[in-house]
Amino acid sequence: MLAALRCIVYRDLLLALRRRSDVATALLFFIIVASLFPLGIGAEPNLLRSIAPGVIWVAALLSSMLSLGRLFAADYADGTLEQILLGAAPLGAVVAAKALAHWLVSGLPLVLIAPVLALQYDLALPLFWVLSLSLLIGTPVLSMIGAIGAALTLGLRGGGVLLSLLVLPLYVPVLIIGAGSVDMAAAGLAPDAQLLLLAAMLITAAAFAPWAVAAALRISIE
C-alpha cells in the first residue's frame, strides 16, 4: 500500500514539474496579492507591521485555493480517477497522498517565500520563524479541507467560484489561529498555544478529511 501511495505522490509531483507554469502562477498570485495591500492601504510602517500576519495569511489562503481545482480535475477528465476508485489501494489513503502532493506543490513554496514578504512588511526578525512555522503547520490543513471542496465540485458548472464559496468559510479557524500566532509573538507573548492548536487542527484534518474526500469522490464519480 505504501508503495502505491509513494507512487501517487511521485506521479503528481512529476506532473506538476512538467507543467511548472501552474505552480508558478499560484506562487506569483500569492506574492502579487500580498504586494497590493501596501499600495491600497499606504506604506506607513507601523500599520504594515500590524496587518502583515493577516494579509500574508489571507493571501496564502486564496493562493492555495486557486490551485485546488487542479487537484482532481485532470484525473477526472482522463479517467485516471475511475481507475483509482476501482483499484485495490484504499481510497482514503490515496486521497491523503494526493493532498500531500498538492501541499508540496502549492503550500510548501508559500512557506518558503513568506519570509521575503515579511521583509516587505518590515516584520521583526524573530517573527519570521513564527510566520513560517504557522504556515508550515497551517497550509496542509488548507489542502486537506480544500480537497473536500474540490471533490464535491468535480465536473460542475462554475466549479471555481463554487469551490471558494464552499471552502473559504471552513478555512476561517485556520486563518484566525494562524494569523493569531504571529500577532501573539508580535505582542511579545509565546505563540505556543496557537501553534499547538494549529497542529491539533492538522491532526484532526489528516484523520477525517481523507474520509470525507473519499465519500465525496464516490458521489461525484458514480
Binding site: 473536500i148 464535491l152 464552499l166 471552513l170 470525507a212 465519500a215 465525496a216 458521489i219 461525484s220
Partner: peptide, 14 residues
Amino acid sequence: RRADRAGAVLAIVG
C-alpha cells in the same frame, strides 16, 4: 440524487 448526497457530505463537514 447526487445533489442530495454531495450536499449531505458538505452539511456534515459544516
